[in-house]
Design a protein around this nucleic acid. Structure first.
Ligand SMILES: NC(=O)c1ccc[n+]([C@@H]2O[C@H](COP(=O)([O-])OP(=O)(O)OC[C@H]3O[C@@H](n4cnc5c(N)ncnc54)[C@H](O)[C@@H]3O)[C@@H](O)[C@H]2O)c1
Ligand SMILES: NC(=O)c1ccc[n+]([C@@H]2O[C@H](COP(=O)([O-])OP(=O)(O)OC[C@H]3O[C@@H](n4cnc5c(N)ncnc54)[C@H](O)[C@@H]3O)[C@@H](O)[C@H]2O)c1
Lengths: 212, 212
DNA sequence: AACAACGTGTGAAAGTAATCACGAGGGTCA
DNA sequence: TGACCCTCGTGATTACTTTCACACGTTGTT
């Protein structure tokens, strides 16, 4: 058995592949070439083929890839052909918006519980969940069999909340606080920070301006 | 004049450098070594030094970097020592949340106007801005001298809205729709999609599970 | 003043990732 | 059936990134 370990860049691209394949399927397209996928993904055909070849041989020479089949395979590879249990920590402005956002559940990410440190929020119902005391998180997380945590607390609390989630056995964390928490090996973190995204663009805007 | 072009990976890291330097400054720390920065950024000291060396020689041997000075320099390099004018397109659930989020203005990103296609939203005041008709965007963007656009419309409208922004002369776009729009060269786009972030983690969760 | 400890800046080396380019098949149609 | 056009999968190549390792300046100590 030849288990090559997959480059992380490839793993980061897989969800994008799934996203466009799902769009193609929704549009009723049966077959797609690496050429066409490349155009849709702003990547070269060679990169698409190389990426997919890490996982198997899904295409047919002379034709391309069968959309529905490739989609099914990739979903399985990524582990998104199943449901994942998610908890949210921090039910403020952002946390409330996340709870009412309808984009997670259809993708198999079910936010089963929400926790906050502020007692005045406990018992409130937002989206489909009841806000609970953060002190309850360990027992609840274990009871619910939670896989993933979403962090929406102020920067100053980010690290301690992440530590808490790790202590609950959670090994994947989506972090909205503008801070990179430290985690033990085997715990995955993705940070979302729109300000950082904006700032990496102003560098280019400025640089374009500068060459007068 | 030796103008090496800066690797994009480096540009993407600069905002993170600024973020931790600002925290260090706020905490009153005067000097920092590449070693310590590396720890805070989960990077090697060598990488920090190499990254900074693209832009100049900011450190002092045997000591490290003066926090406030390095911060000032990086802010200037990134073009975030000034104000940027931003418009939002799509004032729905997410768009409204963005308008009321207090995290952009302190970093110099001023959302000056918001546009929506739905007439029933026109005239509404959300955050500090009035929602206007999308038809007005070109004249308004030009009047306001807008640099950056934020897109929060449904996927189906993403490409056309992006095209519109480009037509307004905007060359930096923060896109929240789960779709990668096509843009002409010289236009910068950053996509934010929490689902994609989650999906790239489930791959690892699944893989960890699989090795029983 | 000599020495030790420290930490930068940077070429060189090692490690990753993207692209090239081509053999091998699949599909189509006369 | 065979000629021709497509497009995959992949080793080889090229390009890019990270890490190494050390000369050299700075600070502090005796
Ligand atoms: N990435 C993004 O798109 C984005 C957008 C908005 C806000 N943010 C960030 O998200 C975070 C929250 O922002 P917000 O506007 O919702 O702030 P907020 O103050 O409205 O909400 C924070 C919530 O976290 C709770 N909290 C604090 N410490 C806690 C703890 N230890 N355990 C559990 N709950 C705790 C508070 O009680 C509060 O309800 C901030 O870090 C902010 O910078 C990110
Ligand atoms: N990345 C994220 O964190 C995140 C979170 C939530 C939603 N989203 C995405 O953001 C988008 C908006 O989500 P939402 O929940 O706010 O949806 P929504 O339906 O509440 O809002 C969309 C708004 O866009 C407006 N709109 C549509 N077409 C337009 C056009 N051509 N010009 C101007 N305005 C137009 C609509 O009138 C509506 O007000 C969706 O693509 C969604 O998937 C992303």
């Amino acid at each position: 058995m030849t288990t090559t370990t997959i480059p992380e860049v490839v793993v980061l691209r897989l969800p994008l592949y799934v996203r466009v394949l799902a769009a193609l399927e929704g549009r009723g397209q049966g077959v797609v070439s690496s050429q066409e996928l490349g155009t849709l993904l702003h990547a070269t055909p060679a990169q698409i083929r190389k990426d997919l070849s890490y996982f198997g041989r899904f295409g047919k020479q002379g034709r391309g890839y069968q959309v529905s089949n490739l989609l099914k395979e990739l979903r399985h590879i990524m582990g998104i052909d199943r449901e994942w249990s998610v908890v949210l920590v921090g039910v403020g402005q952002l946390g409330s918006a996340i709870l009412t956002y309808g984009g997670f559940a259809p993708q198999g990410f079910n936010i089963l519980a929400a926790f906050d440190a502020d007692p005045s929020k406990h018992g409130a119902a937002i989206g489909n969940v009841l806000v609970q005391d953060i002190a309850q998180i360990k027992s609840e997380a274990q009871r619910l069999g939670v896989h993933i945590g979403i962090v929406a607390v102020p920067v100053s609390h980010c690290q301690r909340v992440v530590d808490l989630l790790v202590d609950c056995g959670i090994r994947a964390i989506l972090n909205y606080a503008p801070y990179q928490p430290t985690t033990p090996p085997g715990v995955w973190v993705r940070d979302i920070d729109p300000v950082v995204a904006l700032q990496s663009m102003t560098y280019h805007l400025k640089t374009a301006e500068d060459q007068w």
